[in-house]
Design a protein around this nucleic acid. Structure first.
Lengths: 168, 168
DNA sequence: GTTGAAAGCTTCAAGAC
DNA sequence: GTCTTGAAGCTTTCAAC
């Protein structure tokens, strides 16, 4: 093969293509309802139980299925306020960023932390009880951190929220 | 009680306080790992199986536990790109907003749709395969919609992502 | 890939405290 | 509210095709 100087094809599985259509059908079912029995799933994807069970085992062992969880309604446990926090950092040294990441990840109110491209460096999704709780969180967040800009955007209404990925 | 003119206390369950500490411990366990057996949960919260099972049934029946799902690793199913899209709408009539909401919710790539307070009207979380797929999605998104401003922010790295709420 | 079957758990209802 | 008991059903493994 000629060396084009371009990046190589990934050394390992072409994303999403180590899975056949049956695997993807199983995933679509399970990410919608993880209480389905093997019998039910096998039936719906047109397999018998044993091979279906083996496929699910493999999907779990290889990390395609990361975990099975219960989704809790936030407002039912007194967590009525979700806030997206866009952070622009002042310091961009590797050490500072590592510290920042570790420290922010440790905050339980932060359920998601993303490093972003573009104007915003980090985007946080924060879940708290109410505005007073958010204020307390915010003070803890900025305390001692050199942040250039912090923009809080408050969720008024959750119109759609699913953990089910649009598996093609 | 004197009428202060301030908003009343909510007429129904004080958020999160219809649940006792045992319920909350069960929720913390299940939102971390929904494969735990009743026996295991009962053991950890200090109950025997039946009352533990009844509590879980009640939490599901009353919608505190919304569902049980499998979480799939996006990059393992070829969905390597997550984008947050901030939308400012041009039209704010009720009819327009209803149409907008319905239309956006129907797009499978949109896994979350929030109505926001402040400068941004809507925040979308979009999951796609790659930049080409996002471009195709973006064209469909803006096609025929009067949007004042659309800002796409691309996730470079997922540093933390949990569906487990910080139940106090 | 398939079927069928057996062992061991888990779930859930019933009845008592 | 809690506990114990027991039946039914499910998961998991295995043998055989």
């Amino acid at each position: 093969m000629p060396d084009t100087g371009l990046p190589h094809a990934p050394p390992v599985p072409p994303p999403g293509r180590e899975l056949d259509e049956t695997d993807r059908r199983i995933l679509r079912l399970l990410q919608d309802d993880a209480t389905l029995s093997i019998a039910e799933i096998a039936d719906r994807v047109g397999l018998s139980q044993s091979p279906c069970w083996k496929r699910i085992q493999r999907l779990e062992a290889t990390g395609v299925i990361m975990r099975r969880v219960a989704l809790v309604a936030p407002e039912r446990v007194g967590l009525g306020l979700t806030v997206y926090v866009a952070v622009e950092t002042a310091d961009h040294s590797a050490q500072w960023l590592a510290d920042f990441t570790e420290r922010i990840s440790a905050l339980p109110e932060v359920v998601e932390l993303h490093r972003m491209a573009g104007d915003v460096d980090y985007l946080l999704r924060v879940v708290v009880a109410d505005m007073a709780a958010y204020d307390a969180f915010y003070r803890r967040l900025i305390d001692g951190l050199a942040l250039k800009k912090v923009t809080s955007r408050f969720v008024m209404e959750r119109l759609k929220a699913t953990t089910a990925l649009p598996i093609p």
